[in-house]
Design a protein around this nucleic acid. Structure first.
Lengths: 217, 217, 217, 217
DNA sequence: TATGAATGAGACTTCATTCAT
DNA sequence: TATGAATGAAGTCTCATTCAT
């Protein structure tokens, strides 16, 4: 699914992949890497294992990615791309609930998404030339969040007794926290419970005192 | 705290054998391990490096800990002990704010606390005989949290339009999320901002509707 | 025998990849391992030393054999293969003397044969997944021996006042005993003396009563 | 078993050696070493394990034996002492069958005897200052054997169509062979079967041709 | 006499990486 | 484009040995 390799060359439909294309092979390897990382952890994600899962040799991996670092960085980029695309979609509506929905769709759609992100983040700080990426991307994501919230506050649909940036941090942290715990107890995070959690989060940030007065839209 | 290596000088008679206080040395090594993990990441926390930081040889480490697993498990235990002690202290007051205060004290008191926890958690799932520990301990902690919140709801100091277990999950997730991000941008987590975040969290979970409004049930 | 590394030169087209003939390389390493074990003992047969003798690095050895266990198991298999081939050759003739001859040829042809076997056997019982191999193979070999002897008894060329299975055990034990002592005093086991010993063994198991007496079947 | 650990302090009779003294402790450690070697193999007989089995610390072992080599050499000496004592007893009777009987008594009396001997022999050649011991002792034992056989031949109770030294080698080899296989399949070596084997051996070396028959050459 | 701390070498193994083909 | 051989570093662990007490 469009691991970001999509437009790279003059890709058209793909889906069955017109063999021989570098980008396609890279995407394939990235997918294998993600799978390994999600299931066996970053620490056990050796090139050998990635290659095995992709059904090729180690040499092939190092052929398409100069480094392990490059592989892992590309993986992170592709994941952040997906994340940001999600955010953009939600942001377009300028509705915080829509953002939550997109988020839900993203992570329930790909059960490996959160685990991979978590593993990547956990190793990011000590992987030179990788930490930077995270920081840059993550800041952008937080900013987007803040904007949406601020906008919501102006519209009166978000409580405004807490500054938008703090709220944003709270919500981001919640999301991160769930990402962290998800791999441990996936059974706790059924779609139903996730929805409950999201609903509760919406409740948390909704305007508080309904003055009983008219709450004009 | 209290690795006790300091106060061990005035040992009394010491008849016969050295008895260098095994426990103290183990604590010392644990501290070294925590330090390495916090600064260089779990992946780079080889026994060699831990030994170096502790100022001894690799052999010495394996003398005190049969395994790397044992070392890392002991470290996790000690951290969870600290965490639980904190929780107990806060729980005694049955005041959610007090819990937050204790939490703040704990993590600002030892700037390595969160990074270490994060690294440990990140590797827990794929470290056999370590995942179990985390799960057990973490569940206990979440339960304690839930109890305090439920109690607060009964007393009317916590909003009750969201079930206690959901609220607990939200707050836990927030804490976990901060733990995750803290190592990346420690400068963002100044004591002041942490306090703001905590205050905002308290606001979030405080009762919403003005007591005036009849709140049936 | 037949490590085949000699005849591997005239490889044909070799389209695409190197294909250094894995089997040949493995045989080469096995030979090195056997040599080390014979000369320095199993206990000193580290992968490093095997690699040195084979003129490569330790990594190369573990490239061809996942484990030390796999290496050593493969070695044992190959030795038992040789042994069994020898037995089969002798057995075909159904003549116990021929078996002895084959045996002599085998062990005088490769002066390392007995020492290696001895070292392997000595470590077999405590080498999991290796003991089984020995037991299985050894039992087969003893059975073959018994069959030949029983056959000889029927033909009247082997004394029949001792059951075949006991005789077999005696002869096997003799062979084993020589194998055990050979490494200590190889000079005692000159081809001449070996022949004397074999001749004596044949005498020992030859029919006892002088041909004069009618020995009715 | 009587390892004497019970009456450690108020030992009275002590069969020879003066209480509490070095020699007693050494003997105790030797017994532990033998036990470990027999059960876990020479390769796994670390000083640590020997100490554990003896119920003391590693330091204690190295206190009584300067070296591991010294320990193992002392063990070998003690075992050969027992063996030779046995031989002497049998030799006194100048009856080969008596020797066999003594041999049987020795090895059925201490089921660890053969396994230990086997392990020691297997490592002897590559343990400097240990190989020599074996060779010297073993040669002596073989000579004794030869003498008894030659004597028996003179008395007409041993077949004389095979030189005594060859016969001796055959018998020694048989014994060694059994020693080698005993650890693998102890259940095959029941007292009954051992007796059968011994009886068969006696039959093998008994005079063959009725004195009537002229035995040319 | 005996302990237990500590060392340092060496063993096995895994891994990222390079390279000829 | 892709393979598989091979390397060398690093990691974990075990062990014999030394030594102050």
């Amino acid at each position: 699914m469009s691991d970001g390799s999509d437009g790279k060359a003059e890709r058209v439909v793909r889906r069955g992949r017109p063999t021989g294309d570098r980008a396609a092979k890279r995407a394939e390897l990235l997918k294998a890497a993600a799978s390994v990382i999600a299931q066996e952890g970053y620490a056990n994600a050796s090139l050998r294992r990635v290659a095995q899962r992709a059904g090729c040799t180690t040499g092939a991996v190092t052929y398409y990615f100069a480094n392990k670092e490059e592989l892992v960085t590309a993986l992170a980029e592709s994941r952040f791309d997906a994340y940001e695309a999600m955010l953009e979609a939600g942001r377009a509506t300028a509705d915080i609930r829509a953002v939550f929905e997109e988020w839900l769709t993203l992570i329930t759609g790909d059960p490996e998404f959160l685990p991979v992100m978590f593993q990547l983040l956990a190793h990011a700080r000590h992987e030179p030339a990788f930490a930077a990426l995270i920081e840059r991307r993550y800041a952008r994501y937080r900013q987007a969040n803040t904007d949406i919230l601020a906008c919501g506050q102006e519209q009166g649909v978000i409580r405004d007794d807490i500054p938008a940036d703090l709220l944003s941090d709270q919500l981001s942290a919640m999301g991160d926290g769930w990402m962290m715990m998800y791999p441990f107890e996936p059974e706790r995070f059924t779609p139903e419970r996730l929805r409950s959690l999201v609903d509760a989060a919406v409740t948390l940030i909704s305007p508080v005192s309904p003055p009983a007065g008219s709450k004009p839209k």
